[in-house]
């Protein structure tokens, strides 16, 4: 939310994200950065996920309580982490775009949205599959599942709003405002969902998926998969940003050509 009266640009220069976007706003610099960052993220992600899969599926012991179903955690928890992290990243990029009008920040936010939606969706699906054997139900309306469902809806709302507005600049501005409103609201939504959960399930003993404590042999595959998924998402976002820059360049050329004709 922007105070009326434009913020003098110098005052905000200290924000880390802004410095990053200011630096990368120069297309050549972004090109140079992404040329290195994209393959690094991609290959590292591949290696980490491969190692995580090996440990997660074959080389880690079964859980004392949950048997082999604990292995679902190694794809479920990283998806949940990504859904949340990508939402914050989208909100932060939207904020930078809204205040300083760096187009690159908007490109980043737009690139993040569908990726975040997919991981939120994967988190919900794998959570349901994990819930069936451990809770005895595909879906339980508890605070965490419901929060993730809301997260999914927030991503969908962002995508739908962007898609519904034809004017590109107006779509970007509107979507940025929506992402910021969502970010401001998120703590209240979380609190209300916890509150609601407390009223509904008071005293109910559900066999919680997070068991007593996480064991070291489970932490390794989880950490590998989480790091691998994070790098994979980074790769996806940067790759999509480059595609978007190409598409914009092509659209500009086309506009020029049509103006000449």
């Amino acid at each position: 939310m922007r105070p009326s009266g434009a913020c003098p640009p110098d005052q905000g220069r200290l924000t880390g994200a802004n410095i990053m976007f200011s630096y990368l706003a120069n297309p050549q610099r972004f090109e140079k950065f992404s040329r290195i960052a994209i393959p690094v993220c991609g290959w590292l992600a591949l290696a980490l996920i491969a190692a995580g899969l090996w440990y997660g599926l074959f080389s880690s012991p079964v859980d004392r309580f949950q048997g082999d179903t604990i292995r679902i955690m190694y794809v479920h928890v990283p998806s949940a982490w990504l859904a949340l992290a990508l939402y914050f990243a989208m909100g932060g990029a939207s904020f930078v775009y809204f205040i300083w009008r760096h187009n690159l920040a908007d490109t980043a936010a737009a690139s993040i949205a569908p990726i975040g939606a997919v991981f939120a969706g994967l988190c919900l699906i794998t959570g349901a599959i994990w819930g069936r054997p451990t809770w005895g139900a595909w879906w339980v309306w508890d605070a965490r599942l419901t929060s993730m469902l809301i997260q999914f809806l927030l991503f969908l709302g962002y995508i739908a709003l962007r898609a519904a507005i034809e004017d590109e600049r107006l779509a970007a501005r509107s979507a940025a405002i929506l992402a910021m409103v969502g970010l401001v609201n998120l703590p209240i939504v979380r609190f209300s969902v916890e509150w609601w959960d407390g009223i509904l399930h008071q005293g109910a003993t559900v066999f919680r998926a997070d068991g007593p404590q996480i064991h070291g042999s489970q932490l390794l595959p989880l950490a590998l998969m989480a790091a691998g998924f994070t790098l994979m998402a980074g790769w996806m976002v940067l790759y999509r940003m480059r595609s978007a820059i190409m598409a914009r360049k092509a659209a500009n050329l086309q506009r020029l050509r049509e103006a000449r004709a």
Binding site: D63, F65, I72, P133
Partner: peptide, 19 residues
């Protein structure tokens, strides 16, 4: 609250496949 090792393996495979 205790699930035998090896039980519900298909749930594990399905969730990895869907991911």
């Amino acid at each position: 609250g205790v699930i035998e090792p090896g039980a519900y393996m298909e749930f594990v495979w399905i969730s990895y496949a869907l991911t």
